[in-house]
């Protein structure tokens, strides 16, 4: 079985992004970029499945600019076998991303597709669900555990009410939640080895050109409303009194 993993290059999760003063976007020049944390988990899960002998190849794909090669190389240093860059210099929205990924699926015929549950830049949380829909295959979103069965796989999903288990036939799309695994660290020799692994580049227009009719326009960016400055108290007594005065405790 081949596993396809979709990864996105995003601002590192430790960076506190700032909105540009003119409201035209967020300032990301010179900011540290990384693989979206959920996608790193997706790569890790694919590698573990391969290491258990249940898959024979892990292919990573990203839709992005030339600079995204960096993240593909990191994924290959983790252990992915090869990479596909679908090249575009524009930001893609989830529907187009799903359409592109579907084309890649048609070409690669994977038995399983693993993605992150959400890209932490736009926080859209849509692409995997859209991909599963267009592909007409099952989805298991927000997954924290998977187990292969005779039918396909059982996925444990992190839902508001607790943990839900569903069984899906393969091929399927899985989107990862944080507790699925803890990604490995890459070692220096692996970074060297990854440089020799194959990286194929495809042009986005040949797969799924952008269509303006379903686009969502971004008109203006602003910083969130700051909370009012708080006060520090010295003792529990003071705290309890204050909460009682505010009517929050009786």
């Amino acid at each position: 079985m081949k596993i396809l993993v979709a990864i996105k290059r995003v601002v590192d999760y430790n960076v506190r992004v700032q909105v540009k003063p003119d409201g035209s976007g967020v300032a990301i020049d010179g900011v540290k970029m990384s693989i979206n944390p959920f996608d790193e988990i997706a790569v890790e899960e694919a590698l573990r499945i391969k290491e258990q002998g249940k898959a024979d190849e892990v292919v990573v794909v990203t839709i992005g600019g030339d600079e995204s090669q960096q993240q593909l190389r990191t994924a290959m240093a983790m252990g992915a076998d090869r990479a596909i860059l679908v090249n575009t210099d524009k930001a893609v929205q989830p529907l187009q991303a799903a359409q592109v990924l579907l084309k890649v699926i048609e070409k690669e015929q994977p038995g399983l597709v693993i993605t992150g549950k959400q890209a932490i830049d736009d926080d859209n949380n849509q692409t995997p669900q859209m991909l599963a829909t267009l592909w007409n295959r099952p989805q298991a979103t927000f997954v924290s555990q998977i187990e292969f069965t005779d039918k396909g796989l059982q996925a444990t999903r992190e839902v508001d009410a607790g943990l839900e288990t569903i069984e899906v036939e393969l091929p399927a799309v899985i989107s990862t939640d944080l507790r699925l695994n803890e990604p490995r660290f890459v070692k220096l020799p692996d970074i060297m080895k990854a440089k020799k692994k194959p990286l194929e580049t495809l042009a986005i227009d040949e797969l799924a050109p952008e269509r303006s009719d379903h686009h969502i326009k971004a008109n203006h960016y602003e910083p969130p409303q700051p909370r009012q400055k708080g006060v520090m108290v010295e003792s529990v007594d003071e705290l309890v009194t204050m909460l009682k005065d505010k009517g929050l405790l009786s």
Partner: peptide, 21 residues
């Protein structure tokens, strides 16, 4: 919620639009 997030993007894909999350 996790319920809505699971389903609504599928509806959007079927209708051929992006979702506003």
């Amino acid at each position: 919620t996790t319920f809505g997030k699971d389903i609504m993007p599928r509806v959007a894909a079927l209708l051929g639009v992006n979702q506003i999350s």
